[in-house]
Write a protein that binds this DNA or RNA. Structure first.
Length: 231
DNA sequence: GACCAGGCACATC
DNA sequence: GATGTGCATGGT
């Protein structure tokens, strides 16, 4: 991937990123993402959570579980309209049913319905394959790669962008690939680190970086008030 | 009732 | 390449 380490050894931002992680890890308990019992549940959840609160995703997943349908094979066999009805609580359910079916079709045809069969596929190639599936964009693909398959890919989202821009580490309008590169080029390529770091950013973003921020209580407060360079 | 939530595809300029 | 819009439920 475009994960070339920075040439310069003395990169002040690298230290800050590690400092931010340590501060978050000290303040919050390990987030233990992704909350799921199987890889396919992670992948399905990654699509269901697009622009959707997680509580609504849980309702949809629970319904699939209650019907014993949370497997690649069963979901692949299910009709799109039936699937849409079941995942209704997650919102945009017709759109997501179509996207899920596209993903399940891909998984079935390319990897015989087994995510574990992707193990030997080079990361860049696998990411490209996922991105070619209807309904799978950068964040969904990376969530699957990191949280379902355990590949060293840093996932970024709106919380990541909000938290880092509030702390003046990146511009507010930074694009997905640039923001991902911002992390990946400065951190060791470690799935466990990427996993916990992103989850912690979501945690701190939810609690302190909402539309009405609670910066006064934010554990990253030490980074505010001009201590960081304005990028 | 408005606004938001762990995005993406598509149309239009 | 940048910007705007539809998708839709459930919580605040």
């Amino acid at each position: 991937m475009r994960y070339r380490p920075l040439k310069t050894r003395r990169d002040p931002i690298r230290g800050r990123l590690i400092q931010v992680y340590l501060e978050l890890a000290r303040h919050f308990s390990p987030q233990k993402w992704w909350p799921a019992e199987s890889a396919i549940e992670v992948a399905v959840g990654a699509i269901l959570t697009q622009n959707t609160a997680w509580t609504n995703v849980e309702r949809a997943l629970d319904r699939l579980k209650a019907h014993g349908l949370l497997s690649a094979k069963r979901l692949h066999q299910l009709s799109e309209s039936r699937l849409a009805t079941l995942i209704r609580p997650s919102g945009t359910f017709r759109v997501k049913a179509r996207r899920l079916k596209a993903f399940l079709r891909f998984l079935q045809e390319r990897y015989a319905g087994e995510l574990s069969r992707t193990a030997r596929v080079p990361l860049e190639q696998l990411r490209g394959e996922l991105l070619s599936v209807h309904g799978i964009g950068p964040e969904t693909a990376d969530s699957m790669l990191l949280y379902a398959i355990g590949r060293p890919v840093f996932v970024v989202d709106q919380y990541t962008r909000r938290v880092l821009s509030r702390h003046r580490l990146v511009r507010r309008d930074i694009g997905y690939d640039d923001l991902q590169q911002f992390f990946a080029s400065r951190l060791p390529s470690d799935p466990a680190l990427f996993n916990d770091y992103h989850a912690l950013l979501v945690k701190v973003g939810k609690e302190y970086c909402r539309r009405v921020p609670r910066c006064d209580r934010c554990p990253l407060r030490f980074d505010l008030h001009g201590r960081l360079p304005r990028l």
